[in-house]
Amino acid sequence: MNIFRLTGDLSHLAAIIILLLKIWKTRSCAGISGKSQILFALVFTTRYLDLLTSFISFYNTIMKLIYIGCAYATVYLIYMKFKATYDGNHDSFRLEFLVVPVGGLACLVNHDFSFLEILWTFSIYLESVAILPQLFMISKTGEAETITTHYLFFLGLYRALYLFNWIWRFYFEGFFDMIAIVAGVVQTILYCDFFYLYVTKVLKGKKLSLPA
């Protein structure tokens, strides 16, 4: 554990909590891509199956349980409790375009051709692109509520901090996991355009809206 990883995990947690609170407090999931949230629930489920096979630390177990629980709670709020506010027409990204290629890639490029390892690899690849339906939705509607942009910022920040974590671990522990690193770089790059808009607009008090 190093400072980058800890702050990365906390940033990830902050993103998840911000989204849940936003939906709960406003009693609305307008502007939120339910499809991205389904993908994140799938990511956590396939990655954390090792909860059943190995114990790493108390911290590790608790965080995994929180992530999984929050992911399913978010999906529940969007598709069940506040279904009436869900903007399905603008959430039109086709999930199979992500899940199928990612599944194929996980079977081809992995550390070990075993069931749990392939699911772990699948989750890593899928996480790197899981935000695309949300970004696609924002590009379709041309705007995002400020609280939604905070959510996206913390979600992007988490992966960026993990990049520093991997640099740290490479230098001080000689550890590197090429699959996680490449997927993490891809994931962070996907947020770059958004980071730019966040800094130039949202942090200056303006709403995030894209030019027509």
Partner: peptide
């Protein structure tokens, strides 16, 4: 790169 170890990151 490690195969037989656990994935300790979240």
């Amino acid at each position: 790169m490690r195969v037989d170890e656990v994935h300790d990151e979240l």
